[in-house]
Structure formats: C-alpha cells, structure tokens
Simulated assay, not measured.
Amino acid sequence: MLKETPQTNIKQNGKIRLCILLTYFNRKDKTIECFNKVRANSLPENTEVTAVVVDDGSTDGTADALHSQHPWINIARAAGNLYWCKGMHQAFDIARKSDPDFYVWLNDDTMLQPDALARLLATERELRAAAGQAVVVVGSTVDEKTGLLTYGGSRRLSALKRMRFARIQPSDKAQQCDAMNGNLVLVSKEAANIVGNLDPTFEHAMGDTDYALRANKLGVQVWVAPGVYGTCSNNSIEGTYMDESLPFTRRWQLMMHRKGLPWRSWLALTSRHAGPAWPLYFCWPYLSLTLGLYKKKKSI
C-alpha cells in the first residue's frame, strides 16, 4: 500500500486521483525499481494512485514481472515500434479515458524520492492558486553518484537562439521554464484539457520539448518545482551521433535514427517553434555535422 501522510487534501471533496504514465523496453530491473519507488511514496490523505504503462515489445519478461509485483498497474502491450513519445502518447490516451485529476509522466530510470509526488502536488496547488489557471510542473533529477543536475526544465538562451535551451538549476523557489525533459512531469487534468496529448508526430524525443512550448503558447505556464525529486543519470554520448570518434557516415546514420535527430521530428519542432527563420534552424545541425562543426552540444 502507498503510505499516507496527514497533509491537507489538495482536492476539497473526494479522492485525488493520480495516474502514472510510463513506457519501457527491455529494462526489467529498472522498471521494477522505478515502481518500487513509486509505491514507497508518501502521499496526502485520500490520494488514489493508478498507472498506465506501455510495454513496447519487451522480450525480457518485464510485463510479467511488473504484473506479478504490481498488479495495480494497467499494462498495454505494443509491437516495439513506438519508442518514447509514441509510447507515452498511447499511455496518455488510455489514461485520459478514466479522467484522473493528475497525470505524472515518469521515465523508468527515474528513481523518485519518498516525498516526490506529494511535493509536486503541493507545488502545483500553490502555483495554480497564484496564477489563477492550470499549470504544468516539472521535477528535476540529479545523477545518483555525482549529485549533478541531469533533467528538468530549461530556458531559451535568447530570441536569436530559439532552439537552444539551458537547463535550470532548481532552487528553493519555483521557476518558470520554456522547455522541459519528460522524465518527471506533473500535468493536471485542466492543463491536459487545454494542451492535449503528446504529439505522436515525434518519433522518440522532442515530444516533451514540444509539449512545454505548446503549453506556454496556450497560456498554461510550465514551472520547475523547487528542489530535487529523484535520480536519473544522463545518457552517454558514446555510440551516438554526438560521438566524435565515429566516422562521419556512421554519425549521419545515427543522427537520422529515431534516437538521434530524425529530420521529420526536427522539422515538426522547428517549423512550430523557431519562428519565421525556422528553415535555418532546421538545416543547421545537419549542416554542422557535415562540415565537422557539430561537437558536444545538442541543439535542444
């Protein structure tokens, strides 16, 4: 059973219904550990937690193990061609049919602190009251070994660098952001009704960035919550298109892969959010790699 703490109920009448959204592929141990951390979270009274997860064609027995240890989770199985954004889109779509009060986007390699969910809910309540409207709240994560910031919210560097974002170091106060990583995000029902679902146009990454940018355009503020909410290590650049030790042809192949910077997804993001000069923003990373200018910093 999820533990309860005697905090003031965020919803005045009835239960607070919170739905965890997650997609995974062949990471059984991490996925189980992730939900063990969810299960250990302390929550306000009358909080009901459910989960919708999409198993994207796993072959390591994750779904069976997850069902055995956490039978309360709704598991949807896919063929293995969804990756992150499409998998999360499907989980979101299923979850919205039950109309929960809040959705929590969660990566299976994000290990929550015991009070993470309660703190996110409290922050959302405070920010929504101050803004007088729906908000989205992002939880920051750090590397388990170094304690350095890994994922969270970010700000646009400048009006002239519309597709370059700097991650926001969390402080003791909430901070508004332009973009976000989808590792840990709290989306209220009201915010979801305005912004909608993640866009399955995005083949793997970039859907979280697009969601935050769309939310801000629609008047739904996106905030980085105070403090840190869990651990999640950065993905290594080794073996990716950012790996300068690889030959150009291999780096180009990796760049075009779903987990790189596939042109269809990048086209959707830049054409929507880079302004009138979006063709230049679209072409720049591919030109940079071709000319050997693309080093260790990604454009998003």
Rank of each mutant, 00 (worst) to 15 (best):
P200I: 07
P71G: 10
G239D: 05
A225P: 05
A174T: 07
Q176V: 07
V187T: 12
S171P: 08
S42R: 13
A116E: 01
D93G: 05
A191D: 06
R214H: 06
D64C: 09
K296M: 03
V136I: 12
V187I: 15
Y211L: 09
A65C: 13
C85M: 02
D101E: 02
A91P: 01
G80Q: 09
F35H: 10
R155K: 15
K30Y: 05
A159L: 07
E124R: 04
V52L: 02
F25I: 10
K296L: 04
V220Q: 06
M1W: 12
A131C: 01
V228N: 03
E48G: 00
I16C: 13
W105S: 12
N41D: 10
A225Y: 09
V49R: 12
P114S: 03
T59M: 15
L198K: 05
K30S: 13
A205I: 08
P44H: 11
S288Y: 00
F102N: 11
L121I: 11
R162V: 03
D243A: 05
K37A: 06
M1V: 07
V53K: 08
E203P: 01
L198F: 14
L112Y: 00
K189F: 01
P247A: 11
N197V: 01
A166K: 06
L127K: 04
H89D: 10
E144S: 11
C232R: 12
R27A: 11
L269P: 13
K37Y: 02
K295D: 04
A274Q: 11
R272M: 13
